[in-house]
């Protein structure tokens, strides 16, 4: 699909009044997470986790700064940062992830005869859709409902990581960090000069020019 915010990079505002020191520190740390950083998942689980993240948020291949989604989830689990609630049918998040990853691999084996990460993207999606629909062929799920795992654990954690990354913010035209400078122009169809310019069909060059001067 066409690029909605061509040339917009939320990081261009890093050294403007839109970012304060503590935000720079936090986002710098996030940007510095290597794609392969891992403390929680095992060697065996890791390719599956990465492949799952790649299908839930298929990032453009040529992206300069891909969001380290799998590594961010790994960090959350390593620290065991929880969400404040857990459905009675679900084990705690670490156990849920371990079991879920194992089960998705087992489903891939059972349905398509290969481990999840070895499948073609369409086949991977098929396995994930089955989990989303709550269909379990493997007993690796145990008493954990696949649909609940998929919705409340997997999607929740993958999206929570991806949309906390500047590359995702730039992709959707979000203003990103905003303190001390917030926004001035609040009405319909108004953007501050430090916001993303949306490309109207056929006017991509205009948007690209405006986005180059976002600061």
């Amino acid at each position: 699909m066409r690029e909605r915010y061509p040339g917009y990079d939320v990081l261009a505002k890093r050294d403007t009044p839109s970012w304060n020191d503590q935000t720079r520190r936090a986002i710098d740390a996030r940007m510095a997470i290597p794609l392969a950083a891992r403390r929680f998942f095992s060697d065996d689980e890791w390719p599956t986790v990465q492949a799952i993240c790649g299908r839930i948020v298929p990032q453009p291949r040529d992206r300069a700064r891909p969001a380290p989604v799998a590594a961010m989830i790994d960090a959350k689990l390593a620290a065991d940062d929880r969400d404040g609630y857990r459905h009675a049918s679900m084990p705690p998040q670490r156990e849920a992830w371990r079991r879920g990853v194992r089960a998705i691999d087992a489903e891939a084996q059972a349905r398509l005869g290969a481990r999840f990460h070895a499948l073609a993207p369409d086949a991977q999606d098929e396995v994930l859709k089955a989990a989303q629909r709550g269909e379990a062929r493997s007993d690796a799920w145990g008493d954990m409902p696949p649909a609940e795992f998929f919705r409340a654990r997997l999607l929740h954690d993958v999206l929570g990581a991806y949309y906390a990354h500047p590359s995702a913010w730039s992709e959707i035209g979000f203003g990103g960090p905003a303190s001390p400078r917030g926004y001035v122009r609040m009405n319909f169809d108004r953007r501050d000069p430090w916001e993303a310019a949306e490309a109207l069909p056929g006017r991509e060059a205009d948007a690209r020019r405006d986005n180059a001067s976002v600061r």
Binding site: S18, Q22, I27, R82, D83, P92, A164
Partner: peptide
Amino acid sequence: VSDEREQSKLYWTDER
């Protein structure tokens, strides 16, 4: 911090 993920530190995230 101007960031959703970082600011989850404000919430009661002990498990219920």
